[in-house]
Design a protein around this nucleic acid. Structure first.
Length: 486
RNA sequence: GGGGCUAUCGUCUAGGGGUCAGGACACCGCCCUUUCACGGCGGUAACACGGGUUCAAAUCCCGUUAGCCCUACCA
C-alpha cells in the first residue's frame, strides 16, 4: 500500500471536547504524523440542536490546545471557511453536494430502496417483539415493493441476506488492525436507514460517503463503532467503493471501571487545562492508555523510557502495540507525567502555560525574576501548584498559621530577624553569606531563621528555598512583612 | 433476547507452554534535607472461576462469571 495515509477525527459538537475523543484524535494524529500523511478534522454536526458555532469552536480550541493540528478541516472561528481539497468539513454543508447524489445513485442502481413504513408502526412492532422476547429486525416489507417518490419515504440499504460472493461463510468480515478478524453473521443485520423521511442522511451513511470522498485510508475510531462497521462495510460494497483500513481503539473507563463520565471528575479537555496540566503531559498520558511503546521490540522498561517526547511517540507509534481491552483513566499517572515534564522543561517553555494561572503583575516582572520564580517552583505536580507556591510574591499573606507562628516566630528569633532586615544586598550569594553570619552571631540553626522568615513572609512554614523566597519577595517586602513581628 | 468485544499487582502494562510472572504509577519504609517538595535506596502487591489438551498451562481449547459496545427515521 503505497498511497498516502489519511486519517480523520470526526467529533460531534456536544458542547465539550471529551477526553476520550482527544485520545482517539491523538491516535489518528500520531498515525498520520508517523506515516507523513494527512490528518483531517471533520465535524459531525447532523444533530442540529447541539451543533452551534460555539460548540464547534470548543472542539477547535480543545484540539489546538492539545497540539493536535489538523491538515484539513474547518478554519477556527469562521463557520464558512475551511482548508483542504475535499471540503466542506462540516457535514451539514455537504447535504446537496455529497449525500443527495450518493443516495440517488444507490436508489437508481437498486442497492437501496424507498420504504413507506411509518416510524409509528415500526415502533409498535418493535415493542411487541420485545414484549414477546423476540428480536426485532426490519422485515423488509418495502424491499421489493419498488416504491416511487410520490409518497413520504425513508431510504433503506439492501443488506446481504447470505450467499453474496463477498461474504465469507455468510459473514461480513472486519479485519481490524487492533481487534483482529471479526465476523458478523449477515442475518444479524437488517436493512438500515440511510436517509430519514425528512431527507436528512443518517450517521452511518454520512461516514462512508465522507471517508470515501476525503480519501481516508485509515479509519481509527472508538471501540463503540465496532458494531456499526459491518453496516458500513455493506455500504462500501453497495457503492463499489474500496474499504479503508479499520482500527478500533478501546474506550477509556473511569476509576471504577464504568464509562468515563462527569461523576469521575474531569471529562472535558478544558478541565485538564484548568487543573494545570501541560498539553504535552495530557498527550503522553492519553497515548500510554492502551498503547505500549516498543523500543526494538521491547516494551519500555524504566521511568526514563516512559517519558517519551512527541517525536519519540510519533516514531514509535504502532497500532499493533495497542491493547484490545479498555483502560481506566489514571489521574495519578497523569500527575506524575506532568510533574516530570514540568521538571525537564526550560523556564521559557513553561512561562506561556504558567502565565494564565498567575496575577497580572507577572507580566511586569523581569526575565531574571521569572526564571528564578519558575526554577524555584519547578517541582510541583501542576501549573496550579506552581502558581500557588508563587502567591507570596504577589500578595501579602491573608492570614497566618497560628501553630507556625507560635513555633517559629519566637522572641528568641527576633533579634536575628532584625539583623536580616538590615541586609541590603539582594543577590543569592550575599544573602546566603549574610544569613549565615546572622546564624553564627545568634547561635541559631538554619531551620530556625528560615522557618521564621517563611511564616512572616508567607503566613505558613512552606515556601521555595529560603534565599529564593527572599529574592522573589524583594527587600522592601521582606522588611515590611518582617517588621510587624518585631 | 440477539450480535460483537474484553479479562495478569489498586492502576497502566510486559510475557503467549517450563520465568523467583518483569517494569511504570500509586502505596509503605529508610536515607538526604532550610520548610514543602525533589532525589536516592528498598518493600508489599496480580495471572477472574471451572473443566479439558500436555510430562508441563498465566500462556492452547471449551464452558462459566463479570464488564463494555451495538441492536434508533441518535451520533
Amino acid at each position: 500500500m503505497s498511497q498516502k495515509v489519511v486519517t480523520r477525527f470526526a467529533p460531534s459538537p456536544t458542547g465539550m471536547l471529551h477526553i476520550g475523543g482527544v485520545r482517539t484524535a491523538l491516535f489518528c494524529w500520531l498515525f498520520a504524523r508517523k506515516h507523513e500523511g494527512t490528518f483531517i478534522l471533520r465535524i459531525e454536526d447532523t444533530d442540529l440542536s447541539r451543533s452551534t458555532d460555539d460548540n464547534i469552536r470548543i472542539i477547535e480550541d480543545g484540539m489546538a490546545w492539545c497540539g493536535l493540528d489538523w491538515d484539513e478541516g474547518p478554519v477556527p472561528g469562521d463557520p464558512q471557511a475551511w482548508r483542504g481539497p475535499n471540503g466542506p468539513y462540516r457535514q451539514m454543508q455537504r447535504l446537496e453536494s455529497h449525500y443527495r447524489p450518493a443516495l440517488e445513485k444507490l436508489l437508481a442502481e437498486g442497492r437501496a430502496y424507498r420504504c413507506r413504513c411509518s416510524k409509528e408502526s415500526l415502533d409498535a412492532a418493535r415493542a411487541e417483539a420485545e414484549r414477546e422476547g423476540r428480536i426485532f429486525q426490519y422485515p423488509g416489507t418495502c424491499r421489493e415493493a419498488g416504491h416511487d417518490a410520490s409518497q413520504p419515504f425513508s431510504v433503506r440499504l439492501k443488506m446481504p441476506q447470505g450467499g453474496e460472493p463477498w461474504l465469507e461463510e455468510d459473514c461480513i468480515v472486519l479485519r481490524d488492525l487492533i481487534k483482529g478478524e471479526l465476523r458478523f453473521p449477515a442475518t444479524s443485520l437488517d436493512d438500515w436507514i440511510l436517509a430519514r423521511t425528512d431527507g436528512t442522511p443518517t450517521y452511518n451513511f454520512c461516514v462512508v460517503v465522507d471517508d470515501t470522498s476525503m480519501s481516508v485510508t485509515h479509519v481509527i475510531r472508538g471501540d463503540d463503532h465496532v458494531a456499526n462497521t459491518p453496516k458500513q462495510i455493506a455500504l462500501y460494497q453497495a457503492f463499489g467503493f474500496e474499504q479503508p483500513t479499520f482500527a478500533h481503539v478501546p474506550m477509556i473507563l473511569g476509576k471504577d471501571g464504568a464509562k468515563l463520565s462527569k461523576r469521575h471528575g474531569a471529562t472535558s479537555i478544558t478541565e485538564y487545562q484548568a487543573m494545570g496540566f501541560l498539553p504535552s503531559a495530557v498527550r503522553l498520558a492519553l497515548a500510554r492508555l492502551s498503547w505500549t511503546p516498543k523500543i526494538d521490540g521491547k516494551a519500555v522498561e524504566s521511568a526514563e523510557e516512559e517519558l517519551l517526547t512527541d517525536e519519540q511517540m510519533i516514531q514509535l507509534f504502532d497500532l499493533a502495540d495497542c491493547q484490545k481491552s479498555p483502560a481506566r483513566f489514571d489521574m495519578d499517572k497523569l500527575q506524575w507525567i506532568n510533574q516530570k515534564l514540568i521538571q525537564r522543561a526550560s523556564w521559557q517553555e513553561l512561562e506561556p502555560h504558567l502565565r494564565s494561572f498567575l496575577p497580572e503583575a507577572w507580566s511586569g516582572k523581569s526575565d531574571d525574576w521569572k526564571a528564578l520564580a519558575i526554577h524555584s517552583t519547578q517541582k510541583g505536580k501542576s501549573l496550579v501548584e506552581m502558581a500557588e507556591a508563587l502567591r507570596f510574591a504577589f500578595e501579602r499573606p491573608a492570614g497566618f498559621d497560628a501553630k507556625a507562628v507560635e513555633k517559629f516566630l519566637t522572641d528568641a528569633i527576633k533579634p536575628a530577624l532584625r539583623d536580616l532586615c538590615a541586609l541590603t544586598d539582594y543577590t543569592h550569594e550575599a544573602l546566603e553569606a549574610g544569613f549565615n553570619a546572622i546564624l553564627e552571631k545568634h547561635g541559631l540553626k538554619t531551620k530556625d531563621l528560615a522557618q521564621a522568615l517563611r511564616v512572616a513572609l508567607c503566613g505558613k512554614p512552606v515556601s521555595p528555598g529560603i534565599f529564593d523566597t527572599l529574592l522573589l519577595a524583594g527587600r522592601d517586602e521582606v522588611v515590611a512583612r518582617v517588621e510587624r513581628w518585631l
